[in-house]
Lab assay of single mutants.
Amino acid sequence: MATADDFKLIRDIHSTGGRRQVFGSREQKPFEDLVDLGWLKRSSVDSRATHYQITERGTSAAL
Score class of each variant (00 low, 15 high):
49 A>N: 08
20 R>E: 03
29 K>D: 05
33 D>C: 12
63 L>F: 06
29 K>P: 04
25 S>H: 12
61 A>K: 04
60 S>H: 13
16 T>N: 11
59 T>N: 07
29 K>N: 05
28 Q>P: 04
32 E>M: 11
62 A>L: 04
31 F>V: 02
57 R>C: 13
58 G>F: 00
48 R>M: 14
35 V>M: 06
33 D>G: 10
1 M>D: 09
52 Y>G: 01
6 D>W: 05
28 Q>F: 06
5 D>W: 08
55 T>Y: 00
13 I>T: 01
4 A>T: 09
48 R>K: 13
17 G>T: 04
18 G>M: 02
62 A>G: 03
11 R>V: 12
1 M>K: 13
5 D>N: 11
57 R>F: 10
9 L>S: 02
16 T>L: 07
62 A>E: 01
41 K>V: 15
53 Q>C: 09
12 D>Q: 11
17 G>I: 03
5 D>I: 07
23 F>G: 07
35 V>S: 02
1 M>I: 13
46 D>E: 09
48 R>N: 15
16 T>Q: 11
23 F>P: 09
33 D>I: 15
7 F>G: 02
63 L>V: 08
58 G>K: 00
1 M>F: 13
23 F>A: 12
47 S>G: 14
26 R>W: 13
8 K>A: 13
30 P>V: 07
60 S>D: 12
45 V>Y: 09
41 K>P: 00
32 E>W: 05
11 R>D: 03
60 S>C: 14
45 V>Q: 12
7 F>R: 05
2 A>N: 04
26 R>G: 12
48 R>F: 14
20 R>T: 08
62 A>K: 01
26 R>Q: 15
58 G>C: 01
49 A>Q: 08
49 A>C: 14
4 A>K: 10
20 R>S: 06
18 G>E: 02
19 R>M: 12
28 Q>T: 10
54 I>Y: 00
51 H>F: 13
33 D>F: 12
57 R>P: 06
43 S>C: 13
30 P>M: 07
47 S>N: 11
3 T>K: 08
16 T>P: 00
63 L>W: 05
38 G>C: 05
33 D>A: 15
38 G>L: 04
27 E>Y: 11
1 M>R: 12
9 L>F: 03
7 F>K: 04
24 G>F: 09
47 S>A: 13
44 S>G: 10
42 R>K: 13
27 E>T: 08
44 S>Y: 15
58 G>T: 00
14 H>P: 00
3 T>V: 05
23 F>L: 12
5 D>K: 12
29 K>S: 07
15 S>T: 10
27 E>N: 14
21 Q>L: 15
21 Q>D: 11
60 S>N: 12
49 A>L: 09
47 S>R: 08
36 D>M: 14
21 Q>N: 08
49 A>P: 06
2 A>K: 04
15 S>N: 13
22 V>I: 08
51 H>M: 15
39 W>F: 03
46 D>Y: 04
3 T>W: 04
13 I>C: 02
58 G>E: 01
5 D>C: 14
39 W>A: 00
56 E>S: 10
49 A>F: 12
23 F>D: 08
14 H>M: 12
41 K>D: 10
38 G>F: 04
8 K>T: 09
9 L>E: 02
8 K>N: 09
45 V>H: 09
41 K>F: 15
6 D>K: 08
20 R>D: 02
48 R>G: 14
22 V>E: 03
36 D>A: 15
6 D>M: 13
18 G>C: 03
9 L>T: 03
5 D>R: 10
53 Q>L: 10
19 R>K: 12
34 L>R: 00
5 D>A: 13
62 A>W: 02
36 D>W: 11
12 D>F: 10
45 V>T: 10
22 V>A: 07
20 R>Q: 05
50 T>Y: 09
6 D>Q: 14
59 T>M: 12
60 S>T: 13
37 L>N: 02
38 G>Y: 03
30 P>D: 05
12 D>G: 06
61 A>R: 03
8 K>V: 09
55 T>C: 02
33 D>M: 14
9 L>I: 04
18 G>V: 02
54 I>P: 00
29 K>G: 08
37 L>W: 03
29 K>A: 08
6 D>Y: 07
4 A>I: 11
52 Y>I: 01
28 Q>E: 05
57 R>K: 14
52 Y>M: 01
7 F>P: 01
12 D>S: 12
54 I>S: 02
63 L>A: 06
8 K>R: 13
33 D>Y: 12
57 R>L: 15
7 F>H: 05
36 D>G: 12
58 G>Y: 01
43 S>T: 15
9 L>R: 05
58 G>R: 01
54 I>H: 00
52 Y>A: 01
59 T>C: 11
31 F>I: 03
61 A>G: 02
40 L>A: 02
15 S>V: 10
22 V>D: 02
19 R>H: 14
38 G>S: 03
61 A>H: 04
11 R>Y: 10
28 Q>D: 04
12 D>Y: 10
56 E>P: 13
27 E>L: 11
22 V>Y: 03
34 L>F: 02
46 D>F: 05
41 K>N: 09
40 L>E: 00
6 D>A: 11
38 G>V: 02
33 D>V: 15
39 W>C: 02
53 Q>V: 14
46 D>T: 13
27 E>F: 12
33 D>W: 12
47 S>T: 11
34 L>D: 00
26 R>P: 09
13 I>V: 07
7 F>S: 03
32 E>A: 08
55 T>M: 02
41 K>W: 13
60 S>K: 14
19 R>F: 14
13 I>G: 00
22 V>Q: 03
4 A>E: 13
53 Q>S: 09
24 G>H: 13
34 L>G: 01
18 G>R: 02
61 A>N: 04
3 T>M: 05
20 R>I: 13
29 K>T: 06
60 S>V: 14
15 S>M: 13
26 R>N: 14
17 G>F: 04
26 R>M: 15
61 A>L: 04
35 V>Y: 03
24 G>I: 07
35 V>D: 00
31 F>H: 03
39 W>G: 01
30 P>W: 05
25 S>M: 09
47 S>K: 11
26 R>Y: 13
32 E>V: 06
17 G>L: 04
49 A>I: 11
7 F>N: 03
51 H>I: 15
20 R>Y: 07
25 S>T: 13
26 R>H: 15
54 I>K: 01
11 R>F: 10
40 L>S: 00
25 S>N: 11
49 A>K: 07
28 Q>G: 06
5 D>P: 06
54 I>A: 02
21 Q>V: 15
44 S>C: 14
25 S>P: 12
60 S>I: 15
23 F>H: 10
50 T>C: 07
12 D>N: 08
36 D>E: 14
52 Y>V: 01
12 D>A: 11
32 E>L: 08
48 R>W: 12
51 H>W: 15
6 D>F: 06
42 R>P: 05
33 D>K: 15
